[in-house]
Design a protein around this nucleic acid. Structure first.
Lengths: 148, 148
DNA sequence: ATAAAATAGTTTGATATCAAACTATCAATA
DNA sequence: TATTGATAGTTTGATATCAAACTATTTTAT
């Protein structure tokens, strides 16, 4: 596909990114189903953050996952219902809900986290770290450009 | 942000991509509001396809925009309500709905399309076409890896 | 010290997405 | 030509997103 100018290429880049995310989503959904786990892809995104760093607040989770804070209320509600996390009051700043993994939440990590990393590894096959890094920088610059 | 392995970098890449898309979305939404136009970002994605090639069917639109075909039914319904497009029966293959721009749809193109391209141009400032192309290839390879 | 601004979270209603089941039409083939 | 499979589109119900208005708390500035 030959694009004539940078605008068209940026558009094509956006398309690829969406396509990749969709495939990733489908794969992970399939794996979740295969493991008979009652959770969605979006909830799993939250869990993955917590496996990395437990006990952070909803806003931080929203920033990391690039989601709206009202979506976060919704998703955390659902994770609480599934006994994966609990909301703990932050005594230092009472505006915060600290989201903490339950025992069940950590159990899920053992089951799924290695597999998720493996999936990303698979995606990255044949790509040099320096090249991935360049792409990250490129996209970050584009985002910055849009901000101004 | 220093990542230790390719899996983490692929993850970070995904994050950047989502972030960029969100910013783009916000900018475009703001512009739509400024112009007092009754349309959403998602509907505009469809319109942009049609400005490029009019009279294609819903499945093709879904493939280009990476959307579900049921989402397409929904979005085209809404564009028809707004008099931006019409559904025309394809006499060669009666399974197809050919989606055609109305006069109003083409009028919107004059108003918004140059501005949208300008927005992508702005995003691409400071990036070489060859670099954008490398990123596209990288992401396409990752998607291919996931397929197998 | 207090008023104003910023931040975290919730709620609401509109919009969009997704998967799965369904209808209608076309294509392949035996 | 009759059956089977593939494709385009719709419908449904569950899920997720988004913006905007709102409450509660904390921070900043006067």
């Amino acid at each position: 596909m030959d694009k004539r100018n940078t605008a068209e290429m940026a558009l094509e880049l956006g398309r690829c990114m969406t396509e990749m995310k969709n495939f990733l989503r489908q794969h992970i959904q399939a794996k979740i189903k295969e493991h008979r786990i009652d959770i969605t892809f979006e909830m799993l995104e939250i869990m993955a953050c917590l496996w990395n760093k437990d006990g952070i607040n909803q806003q931080e989770l929203a920033d990391i996952t690039i989601k709206d804070k009202s979506s976060m209320t919704y998703l955390v509600d659902n994770l609480v219902k599934r006994n994966m996390v609990s909301r703990e009051m932050d005594t230092d700043d009472r505006r915060n809900n600290l989201i903490c993994l339950t025992k069940e939440g950590r159990l899920l990590q053992k089951k799924l986290h290695p597999w998720i990393l493996e999936m990303y590894d698979k995606a990255a096959i044949g790509s040099r770290m320096s090249d991935i890094n360049k792409s990250i920088k490129l996209i970050r610059r584009m985002t910055e450009n849009l901000k101004n």
